[in-house]
Simulated assay, not measured.
Amino acid sequence: MTTLTETYGGVVRLPVHFDDLDAMGVLHNSRYAVLVERALLIWWQERGVFFSKDRPPTPDTFNVVREYAITYHRPVAGAGEVVVRFWLDRLGTTSAEYGFEITSSDGGTVHAEGRRVNVGLDARTMRPAPWTDHAREVAAELLKR
């Protein structure tokens, strides 16, 4: 399990809704990935990297998930709030390797942790494309030191 310092990474608090739960009243396994996705979207959007119907997307918003791995430790029981912590283990020319953990709202329980690799694409060719200087500058906040 990973413990983050205050010098890198992002933290986003998100709600767990009743309809996120399975028949046993715990967060459905597929919803953990959705929480990570939402947290990353919120974090990047706050820094000006997002899709909008009112403006063209930045090149860095056109990316896909290449790998995703998650280890579940303790189920999230019931609706409420969780914390998604994430960081970049590595930022390559065209890829970004995130680490993440989903914890209780007080941070005392790690429910799950994992790894996610994104690859930036050229929207026209659908081939890997380098991250822009702006994305690299913003991503520096997330880089694990």
Rank of each mutant, 00 (worst) to 15 (best):
D60Q: 07
L121N: 10
T58Y: 00
L21P: 07
R136Q: 01
L4M: 15
A123Y: 05
G80R: 06
T58N: 08
W44G: 02
F18C: 00
R31G: 10
H28G: 06
V119T: 04
K53T: 12
N118G: 12
E37C: 01
E113G: 12
R38I: 00
G48C: 01
P130V: 09
E46Y: 10
P59F: 02
Y32D: 09
G10W: 00
P128A: 03
G25K: 10
W43T: 05
A135Q: 03
L142R: 00
V26Y: 06
S52P: 07
D22W: 13
R85I: 06
L40T: 11
T132F: 05
Y68D: 04
R74T: 13
W131T: 08
F51S: 10
E37I: 05
P128Q: 11
D106G: 00
R13F: 05
V11P: 02
K53C: 09
L27T: 03
V76T: 04
V110N: 07
S30D: 13
V82M: 10
H134G: 14
R13P: 06
I42P: 06
H73N: 07
E37N: 06
L21T: 11
S95E: 05
I102D: 03
F18I: 12
V82L: 02
A33F: 12
V83Y: 04
W87P: 12
I70P: 05
T132D: 08
D19S: 07
G120S: 15
D54S: 00
A23R: 10
G108H: 09
G80P: 08
D106Y: 03
G80H: 06
I102E: 13
T3K: 07
T71H: 13
V82R: 07
A79P: 01
L14F: 00
R66N: 07
P75H: 07
H111R: 08
T61V: 00
G48N: 09
K53D: 12
G9V: 03
F51N: 04
G9Q: 03
T5M: 03
V84I: 09
V12Q: 11
D19Y: 14
W44S: 12
P130A: 04
H134E: 15
V138R: 09
